[in-house]
Amino acid sequence: MLRRGLPIGVTNLAELGMLTAPTLVIGTLGVVAVAAHGIVIRITSLALVAHIGLARPKSGIDVSTP
């Protein structure tokens, strides 16, 4: 379980870091920049979620079987 779960967990952590770090930097630019960044993040997240949804079944992890 660790052999399959660890790489997936590290990937998720990296994705989270890549989405959070720019937000902290943009936060210093003002309210309008943060709002614009929020809109862009929502749009790109939709594309990212679609690809993750297509990739997960191919990873071979089946949570329904013990």
Score class of each variant (00 low, 15 high):
G38D: 05
I61H: 04
V40R: 10
P7K: 02
S45Y: 06
H37I: 04
T20F: 06
V25P: 00
G27A: 04
P22A: 01
P7Y: 00
P22V: 00
D62A: 06
V31H: 06
L54E: 12
H37P: 00
V63H: 07
T20R: 10
K58T: 15
A47C: 11
T44Y: 09
V63N: 11
S59D: 11
V10C: 05
S59M: 09
R42N: 08
S64P: 02
L54T: 05
S59Y: 01
G53V: 00
P7D: 02
V25H: 04
R3A: 11
V10T: 08
L19R: 07
A21P: 01
I61W: 03
H37F: 13
G27Q: 01
I26C: 01
I52K: 10
R56Q: 10
G60M: 02
H51I: 14
L6G: 04
L2H: 05
T65R: 11
P7A: 02
I26V: 08
T65A: 11
L19P: 00
L29K: 03
V25F: 09
T23D: 10
L13A: 15
T23H: 08
A50G: 05
L24D: 09
H51M: 15
E15D: 12
V40G: 03
I39G: 03
G53R: 00
A35K: 07
A33W: 04
V31I: 14
L13N: 08
I26E: 00
T44P: 00
N12D: 14
P7E: 03
V25G: 01
S64F: 07
N12L: 15
G38Q: 04
A21F: 02
S59T: 11
T65L: 10
L54N: 07
S59Q: 07
L16S: 13
L24R: 08
T20V: 13
P66H: 14
D62P: 03
A35D: 07
T28I: 11
